[in-house]
Design a protein around this nucleic acid. Structure first.
Lengths: 235, 235
DNA sequence: CGGGCGAAGATTGTATAAAGTTTCGCCTGT
DNA sequence: ACAGGCGAAACTTTATACAATCTTCGCCCG
């Protein structure tokens, strides 16, 4: 009669070693410590985490499936370098999915969740105040993921995790100015709408928030090899 | 000028050995030759494909990420058994994403694509006529994937591939009657709308098509262990 | 005769070693 | 001096061997 814990396949924070590697590398990419194009050698990572290449390889394959790492046959794994076309696709998908997610989040609202959101906003403000760009980037993505968790839809959550990870890379590559990745004010507005259970307002604010993020990107179209090279040299 | 400078990480039909295993197992699951709950032993599969466990393991991990296989620690891999709650999430996601996909497909329409769709419809009708249930199930899913490919959005395509695979399992588990998985007529109607570039009609038809599929499912809620057992014995 | 304990078997998780491929430096020939 | 090719080093890929874990079946005890 056990209630069936049912850890499912992709337990969010499984404490096994491959998850530690995956989350470590993910954090490094999302906080922009690892730049797009960086080679991720198996020995190198294995040394850092004290694991054999078998585990590292598993973690890298998962990251490849999430789209933030490219694995080239017989050449190795590299931090992904999304093209402008990729960027447009990612943001189009987010504009489609995230309004629906906040909609559901409005129905799942509870004091515990509101508290959690409030604490997150405080964390974001704090990071922004002390000018910690890395923490800001990470927290900014976590806000969106938090709302997806709140919605209770595991499929949307899985999709969005992928989209957020890719977005972080895109923002790094194509942001015009060094403005904060997401406006904390927008996030506060979204939380306010959720608190009032105003689904329409929440949808609208989420949509305009995403539009604003994308508007700050400079998505030049051709992305020819020459321009790519120029990017690398400039970086 | 090279049309394909980068094969990307998840090439759809890479001809390496792990892809062969993955596609073989996927096909078996999607054609309902492997039933939910079936254990997928590593040695067993490795023997079949003449590969070592390393490659089998890689393939199984990919399938786990796609959601059609569950990997339980120290126990092995099993064909996934989606719950009714999973089923509702999958179809909600499809209702959100697929109308947008056909919308884009309408803009990408070309004689070559129309021909491809037409040939696919013929294949579906043929399979249905000769009562080949396995081929029908497979082709039915491939129709939706074809439209996603047509839309040109690789992210939507990736998401939908996952959703289609899970849908196939869901339909197997929860279908009321032995009706064909998808009405071929509906597919023909959708193609007609695409040909006319009537985006609104295409969206509407796709939506009602999905509604109809879900309506034929019997998503009992509790899914207690006793009922599960009854399912197995009945199958 | 039923239930619990325990050892044997089987299966997965992990590490290490062998094999194949790519890349880059170096050398030779023109 | 430069272009082209040869070769070694480094890396990924694949296979195999070892360790840890779970399952199963038999046996003993109540």
């Amino acid at each position: 009669m056990a209630a069936k814990p049912r850890p499912k396949s992709d337990a969010p924070d499984a404490s096994d070693r491959v998850s530690r590697i995956r989350e470590g590398v993910t954090a490094a990419i999302l906080e922009h410590r690892l730049l797009p194009g960086t080679k991720l050698g198996e020995d190198e990572i294995g040394e850092i985490y004290g694991a054999s290449r078998t585990l590292v390889r598993t973690a890298l394959q998962q990251l490849a499936h999430e789209g933030i790492v490219n694995i080239e046959k017989n050449r190795g794994a590299f931090v992904a370098r999304p093209t402008p076309a990729d960027a447009r696709e990612v943001f189009e998908a987010r504009r489609l999915i995230e309004p629906t997610i906040v909609d559901h989040a409005c129905e799942a609202v509870s004091p515990a969740w509101l508290d959690r959101l409030q604490r997150h906003l405080a964390e974001e403000r704090e990071a922004e105040l002390r000018g910690d760009a890395r923490a800001s980037v990470r927290l900014s993505g976590e806000f969106h993921r938090l709302i997806a968790e709140m919605s209770g839809h595991s499929i949307y959550l899985g999709f969005l995790k992928e989209l957020i990870a890719r977005s972080s890379l895109i923002i790094l590559l194509y942001r015009r100015h060094d403005t904060p990745a997401c406006g904390t004010d927008h996030h506060a507005g979204i939380v306010a709408a959720i608190r009032k259970r105003d689904r329409e307002a929440a949808r609208a604010q989420m949509l305009s928030h995403l539009d604003e993020i994308e508007a700050e990107l400079f998505l030049k179209d051709p992305a020819t090899d020459e321009l790519r090279l120029a990017d690398v040299l400039g970086a």
